[in-house]
């Protein structure tokens, strides 16, 4: 990669800190979380609130399941040339009681993963444009006992 500036591939969906968080929303009335962020209506059938706060979601969780992409996806995916397969994980966030999808960091394959494995959120390049390097969230495996220290 070049020394171009880093920019979020999808603006406003995560912080750009060294320990990044996904940015979601939470219903101030019933406490339901939303990712992507939702601030118009609450989808909990027992709640008709229209009041939401922006929240940083837990940056650690446990793998709900995982797979990989052996073939190049169609546009708008921007593939490296040649295409490099990557792993994908669905991660259960404990506090939010929700599952969030994302790629797994470069260099980690399905053979390195297991349902229940602790992971943390990091930023990695997704693709490069003329002006910048587009980064997005990816999941990185943690040592088995690391989630307690890493906290939410």
């Amino acid at each position: 990669m070049s020394d171009k500036p880093l920019a979020a591939a999808i603006e406003g969906w995560h912080t750009m800190a060294s320990k990044p968080h996904l940015i979601g929303s939470q219903c101030t009335h019933c406490g339901t979380y939303f990712f992507p962020s939702q601030a118009q209506y609450c989808r909990n059938p027992a709640c008709d609130s229209t009041d939401f706060r922006e929240v940083e979601l837990s940056r650690t969780g446990h793998i709900w399941s995982y797979t990989n992409a052996c073939y190049q996806p169609p546009a708008p995916f921007v593939a490296a040339d040649p295409f490099e397969p990557y792993a994908i994980a669905a991660v259960q966030l404990e506090r939010e009681e929700m599952v969030v999808l994302g790629q797994v960091v470069t260099g980690v394959g399905v053979e390195d993963l297991k349902v229940g494995m602790p992971v943390e959120l990091v930023l990695e390049p997704l693709h490069e444009t003329d002006d910048d390097i587009k980064v997005t969230w990816k999941w990185r495996p943690l040592p088995a006992d690391a989630t307690a220290q890493a906290g939410a």
């Binding site: 999808i10 603006e11 797979t67 992409a69 994908i88 349902v115 997704l126």
Partner: peptide, 29 residues
């Protein structure tokens, strides 16, 4: 980004991804 279908393809998540997640869970569980 307001279209979930655009988002998931942009991030590299295709239809077989979802079926594979369910399949892998069967294997591990």
């Amino acid at each position: 980004p307001e279209d979930p279908d655009w988002v998931r393809f942009y991030l590299g998540i295709t239809n077989p991804t979802y079926f594979a997640l369910y399949a892998r869970r069967r294997m591990d569980l």
